[in-house]
């Protein structure tokens, strides 16, 4: 059964064009010069009950705006949205009783008071039956052993501890669907893993539908089977994550810092690499602002080691690093026709 049905949903913002400088700031006091920003532009998708789906996209792609419309906070400019039998923005108060929302950069817990007090308030707000509340608290404790955090005021928790509490809190009232907006933002690797296991385990135990957004490929890969890739407000890929991985999992970004490397010789390097390692599409060679040169290499076509060896032979290397492909590059690849 589809729990989420979204059809040609759009959200446009009217933004005052700001002028520059001191005089500009004064001009803006009287300016009526607006421009329309299409944060979300005509997207449609459906979600099955119990699914975990990931929204992936670079910063400013419209992920959060979509989540905010789905959680009933923002009213769409056009299009229809139907979740769990409600139109979110119309019946906000009734609708939000059965959903949970976690914004990675904000907390839904009360800042000044101990964690356990926040849970007690949530118990009243969502009118949670005592036996459900106790059952859930027991479960959370068995799975993650959070008891030690309960007496600490939320403002004294570390970011990771707060995130764990926030995620647990969103499951407290047994919602049908939970939205996570950047749940792993700003967390270090070990806490990130912990958060991911937490979400995964709770999804398994509670069969909750989960929609999460992220700008890094890793955390979506770890959690979801289905992926929606969004850029500039439009969906550019919606489908199986395995297929996505098969194509992009082999990509690595090789970054090198070269000594005595002139800006003009980047074309030379790009050309020689293109000739030396022929691919379906030529290997993109870019010079970043910080002076590093990055090459996005598909390991199915070319061995990264060969490229590296070649560069090392030709130029003295100061430093190098190898990274997984960035979301921005994935988006560019899709525009270039890689996934079709």
């Amino acid at each position: 059964m589809n729990i989420v049905k979204i059809e040609s949903l759009s959200k446009h913002f009217k933004i005052l064009k700001r002028s520059e400088g001191f005089i500009g700031a004064f001009k803006d006091l009287f300016s009526r010069d607006y421009k329309i920003i299409k944060a979300v532009d005509n997207i449609s998708f459906k979600v099955q009950e119990g699914e975990i789906i990931g929204f992936l996209g670079p910063n400013g792609a419209g992920k959060s705006t979509t989540i905010k419309m789905m959680s009933g906070v923002l009213e769409p400019t056009s299009g229809s949205i139907f979740i769990n039998g409600y139109i979110p923005y119309k019946d906000r108060k009734k609708y939000v009783k059965n959903i949970g929302v976690v914004f990675g950069q904000r907390t839904q817990l009360w800042w000044e008071i101990p964690v356990i007090e926040s849970f007690k308030i949530l118990k009243e707000i969502y009118k949670i039956e005592p036996h459900i509340y106790n059952e859930n608290m027991k479960l959370f404790n068995e799975l993650f052993n959070l008891k030690a955090l309960y007496p600490i005021p939320v403002r004294k928790l570390s970011l990771g501890q707060r995130m764990l509490c926030d995620i647990v809190a969103s499951f407290l009232h047994n919602p049908k669907i939970i939205f996570f907006d950047e749940p792993t933002i700003g967390l270090d690797v070990s806490v990130k893993n912990k958060v991911q296991t937490l979400i995964k385990d709770l999804n398994k135990v509670k069969k909750t539908t989960i929609i999460l957004t992220s700008h890094d490929t890793g955390s979506v890969e770890a959690l979801c089977r289905r992926l929606i890739l969004i850029d500039k407000g439009s969906i550019i890929y919606d489908g199986d994550i395995l297929k996505f991985n098969r194509i992009f999992g082999a990509y690595r970004t090789l970054k090198v810092e070269l000594e005595q490397f002139e800006g003009s010789s980047i074309e030379v390097l790009s050309k020689t690499i293109g000739e030396k390692f022929p691919c379906k599409l030529p290997i993109p060679v870019r010079k970043d602002d910080d002076g590093w040169i990055s090459l996005t290499i598909n390991q199915d076509e070319v061995k990264l080691q060969d490229v590296l060896n070649y560069i090392m032979k030709e130029y003295p290397i100061k430093d190098l690093k190898i990274e997984e492909i960035e979301t921005e590059d994935v988006v560019r690849k899709i525009y270039e026709g890689e996934l079709v």
Binding site: S71, G72, V73, I99, T107, Q108, I125, Y126
Partner: peptide, 13 residues
């Protein structure tokens, strides 16, 4: 600061 969102996602007036 955008914190208003935390109140809007709770079933409260």
């Amino acid at each position: 600061n955008g914190i208003i969102v935390m109140n809007l996602i709770k079933p409260m007036d």
